[in-house]
Amino acid sequence: MSQLKLEPNFSDADAFYAALADIHRDRSPGESEQINARLILLLANQVGEQQILQQALDIAGRTTSEKRHDKR
């Protein structure tokens, strides 16, 4: 089964993070929301494989449910 990579895979992690922060600089929350949506869709298509996307979704979703749990 295809596996989601959880070890570093960036060719330049610092550059990516800086660029991510950059595109959100001086944006309204609404614009940022749209940027994030565009980014997720672009990257999801690049990954393509549903099994991997599902693993990513599971991990992403788990964080929020854990947070919800912590609040209680």
Binding site: Q34, A37, R38, L41
Partner: peptide
Amino acid sequence: VFRDTVLDM
């Protein structure tokens, strides 16, 4: 937002 973004893109 996702739906409208999909349409827009």
